[in-house]
Design a protein around this nucleic acid. Structure first.
Length: 419
RNA sequence: GGAGAGAUGGCUGAGCGGUUGAAAGCACCGGUCUUGAAAACCGGCAAAGGGGCAACUCUUUCCUGGGUUCGAAUCCCAGUCUCUCCGCCA
């Protein structure tokens, strides 16, 4: 969320900065409401001052006047609250401003590739898709999941379940021992305010799975990514600068409705309602965001290097970035069956955008209070890593050789085959 | 599910109708002392919002929402959350 005080300083610049994004913000209304809001605050405060003075004076002759004032305050206050709430509605639906590094563009076609790494495997046969491979191995079962649960779910079984677990453990180990992240095993449900903090609410409620709770108690949502719960670790806090940076990693299931993606990636486990993801979150001083973004992205690509999977790194254009991001790198892994790169990680700096929503601040050496910078990135999506391994490491006979680095996590198994 | 207790500043924790925005301690910042550091001592230190170029000033805030009162952190009602004990389950 943006700081109104900052917006006010140069309203035109604010509009201009957001032009890069495809938004339909009613800027005029925003400005008018802000002015109205402040007018009402002033009216209210004048009355409050008078009332306070009467109360302090303990002068009985003025008590009647005080009562009058109370009812006036009530009226004005009501109007002011309405204005403030309208103002907040607009404000909380405005996305972050793209950093100047970010290329202008409308959609994913305008993203820019900045790096390629690894060798694309050459096959002397027609490479199969992960779901063909998995079903043939009898270790991916989509039909069963449809029966027990519904579409966009999958049973991962036998050695592929082991592989999935190995991937997760391997990534956690690297991030905790080599990259300086602290491992967290967080709750998988988040309340409304937490979801607001990272920007999932109010705008993207349709993408969330809400869990039914007792009447009257707080609303709860299945986390769409561990980013939500990990970033909110610092919610409502003012901490010392010396605590920064904070870096957290968690491997959790993620739940997404994937509303609006009907017909997209319907086959296989590319796009599921539930998937595991190893998530990285950093909390940093506000001027260190971009530096940390590079570090985080390197942590993510480091995993692909170790797994010896070919990938490329792209910078998202202004039109393709997520709501809370100021700058995002996507990392895409090579999928032989599709003959193209597919997203396996997305690393974003959110500048202070989420911190303002969460009221997460720190004190610097002058005891000045500043909003923190937050970053999140996948390190990596476990399901998609599984897919990438299946496809890139497939053999002519339909078996899968296991990346060397993962073997210690799989009882030194070298190959997954039907028996 | 039954019975209690609680929610106060960055943290711990007093206050239980009228200069209380709030004692005390810790943390933090500045100073004295010291070759330096520690300790000790002295001083400072809540946030948000409004007005002002600024110095500064005003308002709000002691979980949330109502109520009583000229006046509420303090009293009353409703709600949310947390904790403890018992039961049940893991």
């Amino acid at each position: 969320m943006h700081n109104l005080k900052e917006i006010r300083k140069d309203f035109e610049a604010f509009i201009k900065a957001l032009k890069k994004r495809s938004t339909n913000v009613d800027f005029k209304k925003l400005k008018d409401l802000d002015i109205q809001n402040r007018e009402f605050i002033q009216k209210k405060e004048t009355l409050e001052k008078e009332k306070k003075d009467i109360s302090k004076s303990k002068d009985k002759s003025l008590f009647a006047r005080s009562k009058e004032i109370s009812s006036s305050i009530e009226k004005i206050s009501e109007q002011q609250k309405k204005i403030k709430s309208d103002l907040n509605d607009i404000l909380s639906n405005i996305p972050n401003i793209p950093h100047s590094d970010v290329p202008d563009g409308k959609n994913e076609e305008d993203n820019i590739e900045i790096k390629r790494s690894g060798n694309i495997p050459k096959f002397d046969f027609n490479p199969k898709s992960h779901y063909e491979l998995g079903e043939k191995l009898q270790m991916l079962d989509f039909d069963l999941a449809t029966k027990t649960t519904g579409s966009r779910f999958v049973f991962v079984k036998n050695k592929l379940a082991l592989l999935e677990r190995a991937i997760s453990n391997f990534m956690l180990d690297i991030h905790t021992t080599k990259n300086g992240y602290e491992e967290v095993s967080p709750p998988l449900l988040a309340n409304e305010n937490t979801m607001f903090g990272t920007g999932q609410l109010p705008k993207f409620e349709n993408d969330q799975f809400e869990v039914k709770t007792d009447e009257g108690s707080e609303r709860k949502f299945l986390i769409p990514t561990a980013e939500v719960i990990l970033t909110n670790i610092i919610k409502d806090k003012i901490f010392d600068k010396k605590n920064l940076p904070m870096r957290f990693v968690a491997s959790t299931p993620c739940f997404r409705k994937e509303a609006g993606s009907y017909g997209k990636d319907t086959k296989g486990m590319i796009r599921q309602h539930q998937f595991y993801k190893v998530e990285l979150v950093s909390i940093v001083e506000q001027n260190k965001c971009l530096e940390e973004l590079e570090r985080m992205t390197d942590s993510a690509t480091g995993i692909l290097d170790l797994l010896e999977l070919p990938y490329r790194k792209i910078i998202l254009c202004s039109g393709d970035m997520g709501f809370s991001a100021e700058k995002t790198y996507d990392i895409e892994v090579w999928l032989p069956s599709e003959n193209k790169y597919r997203e396996i990680s997305s690393c974003s700096s959110c500048s202070t955008f989420q911190a303002v929503r969460m009221k997460a601040r720190y004190k610097d050496q002058n005891n000045e209070i500043l909003y923190a910078g937050t970053l999140n990135g996948s390190g990596l999506a476990v399901g998609r890593t599984l897919i990438a391994i299946l496809e890139n490491y497939q053999q002519k006979d339909g078996s899968i050789s296991i990346p060397k680095i993962l073997r210690p996590y799989m009882n030194n198994l070298e190959k997954i085959s039907i028996n």
